[in-house]
Amino acid sequence: MRPGSDGLRQLLADAWERWARRCAELTPDQWSTPTRCRPWDVAALLAHVCPTAAMFDELDAARIDEDALVTDAAELLRRFNAPGGVAHTGADDLADQAVADAAGLTPEAAASRFSECAQILRSAPIADDVVLRYPVVGSTTMKVIAEVALMEATVHLLDLADAVGGIEPSPEALAAVRDLLIAVPDPTAAVEVLAGRAAPAAAVPAIR
């Protein structure tokens, strides 16, 4: 079952705290270790996923008094990852930006950013009815943004663990992200794949 707003807030804060602890322990060699998210090394992976306190101000500034056009995180991911969607058309630019941003980041700075943002999140409830402007889809809810952020933090934490070890997501975060990602493919295709009736390519990968 996908968690509610308060559960999301606690899981995301916990994920960021796990990132903070591991970042604080990274050695120079680990910082430059290649990851399976090519062409990123650990530094670029961190630059991609590391939040900033300014992000919360940006979210507040994006609030609008309208109905959200997308109210489900699985639908948001489905649109982003559709053929020709931004997950594909913008992939190269996203990869290049992370590499560029990594040049100005250190393990200590990344740890501080993760820790600070986790503290802010723990003190800032997520309201289901807050609607924000959002790229590509027009608008969505704060809950959807938090659910996607948890997915990103969890999947990339697995990428970090694969590269340098010493960290793993919480079982609760893994379960929440599993339930989100399995909701992205067509339900019939997903059931047939999981039941061994169809080849995995019919439903996975659910996201790029």
Rank of each mutant, 00 (worst) to 15 (best):
R2K: 14
D6L: 05
D6N: 09
D6E: 15
D6P: 00
G7I: 09
Q10Y: 07
A15F: 06
A15S: 15
E17Y: 04
W19T: 09
R22F: 06
E25A: 15
E25C: 04
W31M: 03
T33R: 14
P34M: 08
P34T: 12
T35V: 01
T35R: 02
R36A: 15
R36K: 08
C37D: 11
P39Y: 03
W40C: 02
W40E: 06
W40S: 02
V42W: 06
L46P: 06
A47P: 03
H48Y: 12
H48T: 00
V49R: 09
A53G: 14
A53P: 05
D60Y: 00
D60G: 04
R63N: 01
R63E: 13
E66V: 02
L69P: 00
L77N: 07
R78S: 07
F80Y: 13
A87D: 09
H88I: 06
H88W: 10
G90M: 13
G90H: 10
A91W: 13
D92W: 01
D93H: 09
A95P: 00
D96C: 00
A100N: 10
L105F: 06
S112G: 15
F114M: 11
S115P: 01
E116V: 03
A118W: 05
A118F: 04
A118V: 03
L121W: 02
S123V: 04
S123T: 14
S123Q: 15
P125D: 11
P125Q: 13
I126H: 12
I126G: 05
D128T: 07
V130Y: 00
R133Y: 02
P135F: 07
V136E: 14
G138F: 10
S139D: 05
T141Q: 09
K143I: 09
A146M: 15
V148H: 12
L150F: 09
E152G: 03
T154E: 05
V155G: 07
H156R: 05
D159Q: 10
D162A: 15
V164R: 02
G165F: 00
I167W: 01
P171L: 10
A175K: 02
A176E: 01
A176K: 01
V177M: 06
V177C: 06
D179L: 02
I182W: 08
P187G: 07
P187C: 04
A189C: 07
A190K: 02
A190R: 12
E192F: 10
V193W: 12
V193F: 10
R197H: 12
A198H: 08
A201Q: 01
A202C: 12
A202G: 08
V204Q: 00
V204L: 11
P205A: 13
P205C: 12
A206D: 06
A206R: 07
I207Y: 06
R208K: 13
R208H: 12
